[in-house]
Amino acid sequence: MVVLFAVGLYIVLTSQNLLKKIIGLNIMETSVFGLIVTSGMVDGGSPPLLGRGLEAPYASPVTHALVLTGIVVALSVTALALVLIVRVKRECGSIELDELLEPEE
């Protein structure tokens, strides 16, 4: 999990390509989701469905709900980022940061 987070953060910090930055961001997010789900799992446990003849121990339902919410948020942010990147590409013709920042300014 830590490795994934670090890799993602490294990409966000160093990549000059906006699209790759967003991919790095998603790698980071995935690592956090992984941590949340892992913390709620039980060895040999069953899904938290009551009244279906499944035996305890159950996996924690809270962590599943958290991850679901987290994924939705991540998806929304990614969608907005992609649209912004497309707009930058249209208006500037590039999505490489070093090319974008060079002329004028």
């Binding site: 953060l9 966000v12 906006l18 930055k21 967003i22 961001l25 980071m28 942010v77 907005l80 980022a81 912004l84 990147i85 707009r87 930058v88 208006e91 500037c92 974008l100």
Partner: peptide, 13 residues
Amino acid sequence: ALAALKYLIVGAV
């Protein structure tokens, strides 16, 4: 658009 993108990436991290 670039400023918003920068804000978004920093904010998302």
